[in-house]
């Protein structure tokens, strides 16, 4: 059965794994150069990198590959796994050899799952490649480019570490399940693609932000820690008010999930009082005005509440999210085993 599964899967496996091998090659060649640059540079690390088009391309390639692998595996390995057999009627051939359906599916899933783990390991390679970047971020270096985005941030989190493995395995399970339900290869591939992309978009919101209890920090707002102010209403309107204030936390690489102002009663403030307008830096006003404003905010009991995950929780979150994804995959696989033993002609 392993032979048959391999025989059926080898074509699409070769394409996917071959493409990944190229990406790994590009990462392997350029990775050590990054470490070298970090060794010889200081705070100007990101500035030096910013001009390097090749590194930027490889960075994007690696990240894109880690995000694309689940969808590709789900659609091209998962969806046809059962759907193609049912569509061509060959399941009637193979199920009437001396093999149980459970064993048949287990072998197919096992081999494809192994392939999914290998393909999803691209995330580990990307993590290795990005290691100098993450270390620089940890040292507090920064710029406004993509290189200095902390790896805990939702934009990157799913492309690093072991989450791509979990996502790829889940995508495979989604593909097989959809194939079993839809029973037509092309339709199953399309549905799988849509579902996997939807899961990838929804994961940061529905999963990533709920797994670990964040650190809390309550602080006064000062001119030095102020990172942003959002004005409500049209700029230059008669009564512009401050809607949102964000402060910086001294936690390089952290993922800030909550950054809000509370009043003395501990209630979340929707709008700051009108006089707080002075706190906003504006051309032609003396810095003293702002300082006075911040002092008044603190005196009246306004505080900033910040919730964040420190960079050190990266791997803990990786394991938990991967666990959740694998758990979902397991549920789908269980459904497939149940379904395969029911009527299928």
């Amino acid at each position: 059965m392993i032979w048959l599964t391999w025989r059926q899967l080898r074509g699409s496996a070769a394409v996917v794994l071959g493409a990944l091998a190229l990406a790994v090659l590009a990462l392997a060649v350029t990775g050590p150069q990054l470490a070298d640059i970090l060794r010889v540079s200081g705070t100007d690390f990101f500035d030096r990198l910013g001009t390097d088009g090749t590194k930027k391309a490889v960075f994007y390639l690696g990240t894109a590959a880690a995000y694309a692998v689940p969808a590709v595996v789900g659609a091209f390995w998962g969806a046809p796994l059962v759907a193609r057999e049912v569509e061509a009627g060959t399941h009637r051939l193979v199920w009437n050899q001396s093999i149980t359906r459970t064993r048949w599916l287990a072998t197919k899933l096992g081999l494809a799952g192994l392939g999914a783990v290998v393909a999803g390991s691209i995330g580990l390679v990307v993590t290795w490649w990005c290691h100098p970047l993450d270390e620089a971020v940890g040292r507090g270096y920064t710029d406004n480019g993509p290189f200095s985005v902390p790896r805990l941030w939702p934009e990157l989190f799913g492309s690093r570490g072991i989450v791509p493995i979990g996502m790829t395995v889940l995508a495979l399970a989604v593909g097989v399940t959809v194939g079993l339900l839809v029973r037509r290869t092309v339709a199953a591939m399309a549905v799988t693609l849509a579902v996997v992309v939807a899961v990838q978009i929804a994961t940061p919101v529905l999963v990533q932000s709920h797994l670990l209890a964040p650190e809390r920090l309550t602080t006064t707002i000062t001119a030095t820690n102020l990172r942003g102010i959002q004005m409500a209403g049209e700029p230059g309107a008669a009564d512009p008010r401050i809607g949102r204030v964000e402060v910086a936390v001294d936690q390089p690489g952290a993922w800030v999930t909550q950054n809000r102002t509370v009043d003395p009663d501990g209630k979340v403030v929707e709008f700051l009082p009108a006089w707080a307008e002075d706190c906003a830096p504006a051309p032609g006003t003396s810095p003293d005005t702002a300082v006075a404003c911040f002092t008044r905010l603190a005196e009246e009991g306004y505080r900033q509440q910040v919730e964040y995950l420190p960079a050190s929780r990266f791997w803990a979150l990786q394991w938990m999210e991967t666990g959740v994804l694998l758990g979902l995959a397991l549920g789908l696989v269980g459904f497939c085993f149940w379904r395969i033993r029911r009527d299928l002609t």
């Binding site: 059926q8 060959t90 009637r92």
Partner: peptide, 12 residues
Amino acid sequence: VGFVGQDTPTYA
């Protein structure tokens, strides 16, 4: 038990 299904399916 051997079974040859309708349209005698084979792997193309």
